[in-house]
Design a protein around this nucleic acid. Structure first.
Lengths: 160, 160, 160, 160
DNA sequence: TTTT
DNA sequence: TTTT
């Protein structure tokens, strides 16, 4: 009954940090900058930068930890989450983070080891399985009533 | 290196059609209306309706076939796909569709059997498994360096 | 070179507050709830609610102040912004808000005065002008090389 | 009561075409490629490319015509629109296009004249005015109850 | 027709 | 703390 979606394209301020929960779940965190440019009243070019706290879990955490680095331009899709914590004096504090479920490397023309790529956090899948998916197979020409099946479902012939 | 994302909120023009490929993969199709309102030059309220061809596969297809119906308001997230087909005269024709990977029922205040709900097509998961995910577990109070783990990953205690 | 976009569908926790800057700019603020449902390890239905601080300016602020109310379901599009402030003890605190640039009323079948509607904050326009746009005019049948012009640009005949 | 939103990151297949309606409204059209990569059943890397017909109007058309070119990577935000036309034989045909309302140049590190930038099509504004917006002004330190006003609204002091 |  |  509700939607909570964030789409960001920005640059990492630092290398990601990859850590693990006691039970072994990988968590990557990094900060991502987005910038707005505008002209002030004197007509001078100004820039305002926003810093986003990104959190990625499991398979996506590992991909972030492995491939992302300071300065890298990425597309992030996820949701907003605010969590409460106590500071040293025991007062309630809040921090807002973006829990990523998709990450797409952008830019990186030749200057990158491996170049651009895409990763998705399957929210329902048991942790661990996030292979880029099988797919393909021989395709006949589509006819009027065909639906072309997505690549990741290779065994099916379409009946209409 | 690229993003193809569609977000729609609209109403179904008819009940969905649920069909199966020869190998047994479910496919649901339906048309979804979105409308723009505007005032014409005479100041009269006008409306322009856009019809979208929605296609859902596998688990999401079954959910659509089961819960959606004519008039229902839904949120759809997916990608644009244009496929080619031959018409009766053998000429190439093209049709553009939205391949859904998320669907969220909206509205439906009491007038619905089951009310609103959410479903996601995991792009990587082997077809079939799309249970709404386990989750929860006993939670201690988060501390300064906590990250609250998503509900679907219940076994992990967070170490920071 | 960057994108900062948020899309929310949720319900207002309270009526909006509409205030004005000294120079007369309207600002509306309200909190918006989005909820995730999931099954815990015992198979019981659980719900996690996220509260978002929404800020709207100018024309959009006035529309929000006038038409929204506690419980109303809305679509919000905007950007994430974190601002710093000092608490009573002079310590730096941060709060993250969603600066809305589009708002769309959802749901509200008959129970609303005026029903659903749409509003957009033009980022470049001088404050004040946000009429739903003129448009329309007599339309001839589009031909092969037509582009149908958007409704808000009524004077143009399309030359191709 | 409905949402029709498309978000694309892709590359131009050709230079844009910039044309004008009889009344002088600029229209830019170009095709944009998005690609999905996947592994087929033999584990071989495959790619599927989707071509999108992009249409931009007025100020945004001119910016596209001026700054975009074949191969350029861009972010496009807009809506889906299907229009009907008659082919040479008088049969009804349909074409689906993305009517852009935002465009953001991506990538382009050093190899571009002018580099990356951002442009928005104000849907309500009279055609023509799309200057990147004034803004800024001297800012005092925000206090607990401040809202930082957007840069494009320079005259206002915030009263809370 | 693009890009990696 | 990034990027252009």
């Amino acid at each position: 009954m509700s939607i909570n979606k964030v789409i960001l394209v920005g640059n990492l301020g630092k290398d990601p940090e990859l850590r693990y929960t006691p039970s072994g779940a990988p968590v990557a965190t990094f900060s991502l900058a987005t910038s707005e440019r505008y002209k002030d009243r004197n007509g001078e070019q100004q820039e305002k930068t926003e810093w986003h706290n990104i959190v990625a879990w499991r398979q996506l955490a590992e991909i972030c930890g492995k491939y992302l680095h300071k300065g890298k331009q990425v597309y992030i899709e996820g949701k907003i989450q605010t969590r409460k914590y106590q500071d040293r004096d025991g007062n309630d504090r809040y921090i807002t983070e973006i829990v990523a479920d998709q990450m797409q490397m952008l830019g990186g023309r030749g200057d990158e080891g491996g170049g651009a790529g895409y990763a998705r956090q399957s929210s329902a899948a048991p942790r661990g399985d996030q292979r880029p998916a099988a797919g393909g197979g021989q395709k006949r020409e589509p006819s009027r009533d065909d639906f072309e099946e997505p690549p990741f479902n290779p065994d099916d012939d379409i009946p209409f």
